[in-house]
């Protein structure tokens, strides 16, 4: 699969207000693809459409080689190849174990396999000691690590990250960035990350897209975009002049 996501004239409105209007977008496989933009620019909306959580009003969407027709069976099949970590990842009532096992149990995996997989994941993010802790009592950083373990447990081809570190302390953020890099390298997982953090984008991204007011302003490799922005709005954002 060369291009897991192809978007064509995707429009989303909330009432009269048009919040997203993407004419063309292809996201290549295996990269860390970063969607950069100020608050309210439509990045999360875009991510939710690609994650099949939000139906677009116009245009065509192709996910993992399939034209999305929003049919129940198709949605489940496609969603089961992707997972997501959000800014304040929601934890189900219950233990850390319950949360990490959630996606596996949804796939009716045997209890034994679930135990092994959850164990591996918790070890990977260094949360083994918290296995039986109440997921809702964790700190922000711990919670995000559990969220990553939970999202990766199902072995996704695509991992969506929606501002994964914006609510946590620096040390945890660095830790999580390292995990992201590692996941991408070792598992070849396509990572699509939304952030308004310029520095994080610089540290992680292979390719970057800059979005403002629901429209793509500029896109390209991280190197190109950060060193020689073509659009003045991107340049202003990179200079830190856009308030967010």
């Amino acid at each position: 699969m060369k291009t897991p996501f192809k978007l064509h004239n995707i429009v989303k409105r909330y009432g009269e207000r048009e919040v997203l209007n993407i004419d063309q977008l292809s996201i290549p496989a295996g990269n860390i693809y970063t969607i950069l933009g100020p608050n309210g620019s439509g990045k999360s909306t875009l991510l939710r459409i690609m994650a099949l959580l939000l139906v677009n009003d116009e245009g065509q969407l192709e996910v993992l080689g399939e034209k999305v027709i929003w049919q129940k069976g198709q949605l489940l099949r496609l969603r089961r190849q992707m997972s997501m970590v959000t800014q304040t990842s929601f934890m189900f009532q219950g233990s850390v174990y319950y949360n990490v096992a959630y996606g596996l149990r949804a796939r009716q995996m045997s209890a034994k396999k679930v135990r092994r997989q959850v164990g591996e994941m918790l070890e990977m993010v260094g949360m083994t000691a918290y296995r039986d802790a109440d997921a809702r009592t964790l700190s922000g950083g711990e919670r995000q690590k559990v969220a990553i373990a939970r999202a990766l447990a199902v072995n996704p081809r695509v991992l969506f990250l929606d501002e994964p570190t914006s609510n946590i302390d620096l040390a945890s953020a660095t830790d999580i960035e390292n995990h992201i890099r590692q996941i991408n390298k070792q598992r070849k997982t396509t990572i699509i990350m939304v952030t308004h953090n310029l520095f994080q984008a610089r540290r992680l991204a292979d390719e970057v897209m800059f979005i403002s007011d629901g429209r793509i302003i500029e896109k390209g490799t991280a190197e190109e975009l950060f060193s020689q922005p073509r659009d003045e709005r991107t340049a202003a954002f990179l200079r830190g002049e856009t308030v967010f």
Partner: peptide, 17 residues
């Protein structure tokens, strides 16, 4: 909140689950 459904859905839960 919406996030309950979203989290379940992105983890591959069926509509019933």
């Amino acid at each position: 909140n919406q996030e309950v459904y979203d989290t379940a859905a992105t983890l591959g839960a069926t509509r019933r689950q």
